[in-house]
Nucleic acid binder design. Structure first.
Length: 793
DNA sequence: GGGGGTAAGTTTTTT
DNA sequence: ACTTACCCCC
């Protein structure tokens, strides 16, 4: 069992590399371990470069070595290199690895960070040019929604019918595409509140400016605006950044792409690294097309493919490759490995999800007996609700585990409350923070009082805290709330005056004490009150790592994760999305069933593209495994509390027989896949004629497993279903395919037409998109339906 | 202002 | 089936 040549292992620290290479000594040692393609990607410094790096091909190594190379050859200094990642985690990891290569010089990499953190830095420098002050606040999703509620209310729109969440979702989508309110197409803007979408968006943006605030989308959009409106400033940054590097390029959205293109069009020394097969964030605006567009926007770009995989064994790699080959929209890479074939990928069926968890736990215990490190084992699920069953099982049998994801530290109510207090002190214009804490703990300041303050602040165009200072000098409020408010703003002013003289963590502790916030939780007898106080202590503790309160607030507004540094040996439970970029010796992939994976919502909303994205997710899952990939599916799973009979995922069928071993859950008595009526409700609207539950697409697919064009060889479906003598064989029907074909079709319906739908009854067409109709049903409310299931009433 | 009852929404997640 | 958010009433 030879040790795997893991390309992701950092190269040993080599002290004076930079100095030596600069002096023109022998080829630097850091280049030695690279394969020819990797080396080419590192050394192609001039002009645009696109590196298509498959899973496990040493992508991060190329990026970090390239930076080391730029510095070592004296092409640029650390502060002249812009390197962009998506997550803070990735940025941290990259900085760390660069430090391993070139030492402390990496500290000078001040332009290494996420799109958002770099944008923030740029905006703080030039805030006045986009109508902000340099101490602008960054709002998180929660603040965004609260603000949108206010905006919707101000327009006298029914919040019930037009929820702020939905508006937030729309505006987010627009910002992902760098659409300012004026640029939103009329058709899209019409899809909210009967055409008020655009107006609300504009109003929201205006409110943000008054609040001196940005949401996450604005960070990118305002930076783009800054560059577009100020060519001289753009020019100065184009000149400064001699080299630009981008990680995970397949995850960029339109706004990020424009951002990047503006900066890169200067020196054109831009290097993007990505893998179209690992694009799994389309649902939040990522555009794989950006990869395809690269060569168009940067003519003459060098394209380098990294296809040698250093991570997985032959069987695992073959399985993943075969699966992903079912996707149409690919640039097409063929991964290969010189390593051994290793163990086959296993597929195991179980009766239900509980048995699935038991089987996985048993496997883990066996591996444990063979001294397999638990840190090298991961359970990757499609949806987080699957995690609970594994946790329960692991608790009963005593397998240590850690869950990645879940509710995040900075999203907890007590943390957000505390932060709101700190924000009030640091950023006096932060109305959202003020509103959050004005009556927490309870001070007897109800809606009536707040409204008075609100009105006054609006009228005078001043922040609420300032408005309070005026109001308490008037007779407008009753004595009691007046006095309470006065005390509150006096306290805030007092705390603010201590900012420069008191260590910030002490000040914050004082704020929480004096405001009565800690006392509130101490008085609370509910079970989690103690935990909340603990969290607050943790918050105070963690802020000591920062220079001042301002820096701390900046950090957490951009980094919504708390550092967790436990090193014990534990199994990791996480979502497939969370696993991107990671690797484990053994990977368990439970829940490969229709109705869960591919996830129906992805098919509903994105059609064929959604299915392909789900398949890429499956690909990401399998390619996380170095030596063992173990798939599972259950015949019964409880979803939203209801038991559903389920059939294996189509992705199981798409695995190559030669590399996969089918096992059965021991003594499970499983084997029946007949649908006993019921279930499958999501297909109902697709099957208006189908009284029989055997008409569901999933069932049909099960019947014709292995006969799919384009899928080589027989699928495994049969192995589990014991052959099939289904009713009629109808063509594979994906809801998504119907939806996908719908775009561009001219509808025969008109807005305002009365229609009848087989499932939802009578309604009125309110919008048309291809052959998708948005209909306000008399009984069922607003729904998006396919034209083909609708007739004129 | 707090508590209880009802209604709605339950994929993935960063920043 | 379950949680969470909101509304209304006390």
């Amino acid at each position: 069992m030879p040790p795997r040549d893991s390309q992701d292992a950092p190269t040993p620290r080599a002290g004076g590399i930079a100095a030596r290479a600069q002096a023109g000594a022998a080829p630097a040692r850091y280049l030695a371990g690279l394969n020819p393609e990797q080396r080419r990607a590192v050394e192609a410094l001039d002009g645009p470069v696109l590196v298509l790096a498959g899973a496990g091909t040493g992508k991060t190594r190329v990026l970090t070595t390239r930076i080391a190379h730029i510095i070592a050859t004296g092409r640029a200094r650390t502060q002249e290199i812009l390197s962009v990642t998506f997550t803070n985690k990735a940025a941290r990891e990259m900085k760390h690895r660069i430090a391993m290569l070139i030492g402390d010089v990496a500290e000078g990499m001040q332009w290494l960070g996420t799109f958002h953190s770099i944008s923030t830095k740029l905006l703080r420098r030039h805030a006045e040019l986009v109508g902000l002050r340099s101490d602008f606040t960054i709002l998180d999703t929660d603040d965004q929604i609260r603000l949108m509620k206010q905006v919707i209310r101000a327009e006298n729109i029914d919040e019930k019918r037009w929820p702020a969440r939905q508006l937030a979702f729309l505006i987010d989508g627009w910002k992902n595409r760098a659409l300012t309110p004026e640029k939103v197409s009329a058709g899209e803007a019409a899809s909210f509140a009967g055409g008020k979408g655009q107006k609300l968006y504009a109003a929201y943006q205006e409110r943000l400016k008054t609040l001196n605030a940005c949401d996450f989308g604005d960070l990118l959009m305002e930076t783009i605006r800054l560059f577009q409106d100020n060519p001289d400033i753009l020019k100065s940054y184009q000149d400064r950044f001699r080299y630009i590097l981008v990680d995970e390029y397949q995850d960029t959205n339109v706004a990020q792409y424009l951002w990047l293109r503006l900066l890169a069009q200067g020196r054109r020394n831009v290097c993007c690294v990505g893998d179209d097969d690992q694009s799994i964030y389309g649902w939040r605006g990522a555009e794989v097309d950006n990869i395809l567009r690269f060569e168009h926007d940067f003519p003459g770009a060098t394209v380098i493919k990294l296809e040698r995989n250093y991570r997985s064994t032959g069987h695992i790699l073959a399985s993943a490759s075969h699966l992903i080959a079912n996707n149409e929209g690919r640039l097409g890479k063929t991964l290969f490995t010189d390593g051994e074939s290793g163990e086959k990928v296993t597929v195991t069926g179980s009766w239900d999800s509980e048995e699935e968890a038991r089987l996985v736990a048993e496997e883990i215990e066996q591996l444990q007996r063979k001294n397999h490190s638990l840190n090298e084992i991961a359970i990757l699920v499609r949806a987080s609700f699957q995690m609970r069953e594994f946790e329960e099982r692991f608790v009963t049998v005593g397998i240590p585990y850690r869950v990645i994801g879940g509710p995040r530290f900075y999203e907890r109510a007590e943390i957000r409350d505390a932060l709101a207090y700190f924000r009030c002190v640091c950023q006096p214009a932060d109305d959202l923070a003020f509103e959050r804490i004005v009556n927490v703990p309870k001070r007897g300041l109800g809606d009536a009082t707040i409204n008075v303050v609100h009105e006054y602040a609006r009228g005078q165009q001043i922040p609420m805290i300032q408005a309070v200072r005026f109001i308490v000098e008037t007779e407008e409020l009753k004595p009691k709330p007046r006095q309470t408010l006065r005390e509150l703003v006096d306290s805030i002013a007092r705390w603010a005056s201590m900012l420069d003289t008191t260590p910030h963590h002490e000040l914050c502790e004082t704020i929480l004490e004096e405001s009565g916030y800690t006392a509130m939780w101490k008085a609370d007898r509910s079970a989690d009150a103690a935990g909340r106080l603990e969290n607050l202590k943790e918050l105070i503790r963690s802020m000591q790592d920062f220079e001042n309160l301002r820096a701390f607030l900046e950090h957490i507004s951009l980094v919504m994760e708390a550092a967790s540094g436990e090193a014990e040996d534990r199994v990791t439970i996480m979502t497939l999305h969370g696993a991107k970029g990671l690797e484990f010796e053994t990977v368990f992939l439970p829940g490969w069933e229709e109705g869960l994976f591919p996830h129906p919502r992805a098919l509903d909303e994105q059609g064929r593209a959604g299915l392909e994205e789900e398949r890429r997710l499956a690909y990401v899952g399998i390619t996380r495994a170095k030596r063992r990939a173990k798939l599972y599916f259950a015949s019964n799973r409880r979803i939203h509390g209801m038991w559903n009979a389920t059939i294996p995922s189509r992705f199981v069928d798409e695995l190559p027989e030669a590399n996969v071993e089918v096992t059965e859950g021991a003594g499970s008595g499983f084997g029946g896949y007949g649908r006993q009526g019921g279930g499958a409700s999501r297909f109902d609207q697709m099957q208006p004629f189908g009284a029989s539950s055997y008409n569901t697409p999933g069932w049909q697919r099960a019947q014709k497993a292995g006969t799919r064009p384009g899928s080589t060889g027989g699928g495994f479906g049969e192995a589990f279903r014991g052959g099939s003598a289904g009713p009629q064989r109808q063509p594979l029907l994906i809801e998504g395919e119907l939806l996908a074909k719908s775009t561009g079709v001219v509808s025969s319906f008109t807005v305002g037409a009365r229609i009848f739908h087989v499932k939802f009854g009578y309604g009125e067409v309110s919008a048309i998109d291809g052959n998708k109709l948005t209909v306000d049903f008399d009984k069922a409310g607003r729904k998006m339906v396919l034209e083909s299931f609708v007739q004129v009433a």
